[in-house]
Design a protein around this nucleic acid. Structure first.
Lengths: 256, 256
DNA sequence: TGTATTTGAGTCAGAATGACTCAAATATAC
DNA sequence: GTATATTTGAGTCATTCTGACTCAAATACA
């Protein structure tokens, strides 16, 4: 057990709300795939891969804690995020990997970990970021930060696999309401980019010509450039309209 | 300060997760209005009106706590509920009314209230219930339970007004995905009922003939009766189809 | 120069939408 | 008993949207 982490946990006892954690699903779009930021922790042999997370300071707003946690992993400061789930079963602790480690400890060491060994309720947030703008870096305590395609998120430790699944379901539901794409794409993008992103989020193929027609008709995006340094035929560049609602269908308008 | 409540708080210290509460927005539909269950508490002069709420036992799943809290106010056991928000500002305590009361107390009394005087993060759930099936009754500790039309929910204490607003926004978003209406209406209902409910949820008027056409075309409901003991022309009775998806539009199908 | 691939644009039948009108059924007033 | 107001159920129609297509233009690479 590394000193630094031990110290961190001792400090939490005095400064953070007990039994409450935050987890963040930070989505990015790259290689025509949705990806999430994960942290790797080497815990005495056991390698565990988790979502970025943390705790809430006694004098800290929950939303501030989320901002802080996202910033720790991505350096991004002004991001949009959304709460989407709570995982709070009574049996929810830091998992087998953690328990195995604790088993090898003496009484004193175990007591130091008492705070973090309790049952935790975790509040889950999702954030959408522009992949290219992110510089991932390890957080203060042991972790490395990296991107993981969502198809591989089954490998996550604890219940974080289910958290990602829940986040993805929420993302799909939010698609028609929130300006999702504008957060996941760079300022200038091509229609094929937006098409691939929408397919990645919905998890199924969408007819290209029809997608193009519908998006253009909605006037959410404006052509801002002529060329693209691609491989085949160059595509037009677009940007989301400032001010114009950037959802794919009208809000609260289900055909009535 | 009534003995019973005092005792309750003392017991929470040992049995419940600290600084974490649950609040429930329980929706019903009556008099063509959306209504929510509220509890009234008489706290030494100050009358405060709050949403049903409670705390999570150390050995209790969060979802079980929600079930328990809903049951306390409504006697309903098997209800669907959904988490929709978290309120967690650092300044979030039990409010002015509570503070005023504490100000009149001696040191010992204050210490007894220490647990509940801390900053609390509250997890919010919404539930949809059939108004007619509910027998509201006071919970174990001082409260009376009653229905309140959502338009009057501005009168709620603490930040519970905002919680209701957030719940309503969620309800509107969920409308096309979840079998919402089937939870809010009795087993047999008329099309005008369903129409009025949809208008109440969306907060705007919907063309009746068009609504009728669309609902019937979707084959979500089946005619189950001929007559209704109404005042004017009798309306047909309908029931939601068992098995058939009871949403108003197709899931994840935003026109692509 | 030719070919494969990708982008942008168009066609067309069928379905859905929004704004309507109109007749049938009933309680209540007269 | 009849007329009237109100509510329910059904239909019309022009416009728009959808889904499944085809096809030409632009480029890299063989």
């Amino acid at each position: 057990m590394i000193q630094k982490l031990r110290h961190f946990i001792r400090s939490l006892e005095k400064t953070a709300i007990p039994q409450l954690s935050i987890n963040c699903v930070i989505f990015g779009f790259h290689d025509r795939n949705l990806q999430v930021v994960v942290n790797r922790i080497a815990l005495e042999g056991a390698r565990i891969v988790v979502l970025p997370g943390g705790f809430v300071g006694q004098n800290e707003d929950v939303s501030k804690a989320v901002t802080r946690i996202v910033k720790e992993s991505t350096s991004l400061e002004r991001i949009m995020f959304q709460q989407f789930a709570v995982f709070g079963d009574a049996s929810r602790t830091f998992g087998k990997e953690f328990k195995a480690m604790v088993a090898n400890m003496n009484t004193e060491e175990r007591q130091e970990l008492a705070w973090i060994s309790r049952r935790f309720v975790t509040i889950c947030y999702m954030a959408l970021v522009n992949f290219e703008k992110i510089k991932l870096h390890p957080t203060q305590y042991l972790e490395t930060a990296e991107w993981m395609p969502i198809e591989k998120s089954k490998a996550l430790s604890l219940d974080h696999k289910e958290i990602v699944e829940s986040a993805l379901a929420t993302l799909r539901k939010e698609l028609p309401y929130a300006p999702i794409a504008s957060n996941l794409l760079p300022a200038k993008f091509t229609l094929p980019d937006l098409h691939a992103l929408t397919e990645a989020i919905l998890g199924r193929s969408i007819d290209r010509p029809n997608f193009r027609r519908k998006i253009l008709k909605s006037e959410q995006i404006v052509k801002v450039g002529q060329d693209d340094s691609g491989q085949r035929r160059p595509a037009d560049l677009y940007a989301f309209r400032h001010g114009k609602r950037t959802s794919l269908i009208d809000e609260y308008k289900f055909g009535f």
